[in-house]
């Protein structure tokens, strides 16, 4: 499973990285460290039909994103 580390990357690049990755991946791990990017990425992934499971590790958010089963 691919991991995208978007910690410290400024807006809107994390979402752009996610958008590009979701065009080819059905499951990935996204690492973020900003609440703004977190909300946007969760919302975007869900809108595209993916399940998002977020865990917090210290200052970092780990988003496990996988295509939702019908």
């Amino acid at each position: 499973m691919r991991t995208i580390d978007a910690c410290g990357i400024s807006c809107p690049e994390p979402l752009l990285m996610l958008k590009k990755a979701l065009q080819s991946e059905s499951e990935l791990m996204l690492l973020l460290d900003g609440k703004g990017a977190l909300g946007n990425c969760e919302e975007y992934a869900k809108k595209q039909g993916f399940d998002v499971e977020t865990t917090i590790e210290g200052d970092m958010f780990k988003l496990h994103i996988a295509r939702a089963h019908e």
Partner: peptide, 17 residues
């Protein structure tokens, strides 16, 4: 809110947000 006056146009184009 993270209000930003470029994000309105930018995010509409980039993410349909």
């Amino acid at each position: 809110s993270r209000l930003c006056f470029i994000a309105g146009i930018r995010d509409s184009v980039l993410f349909r947000n």
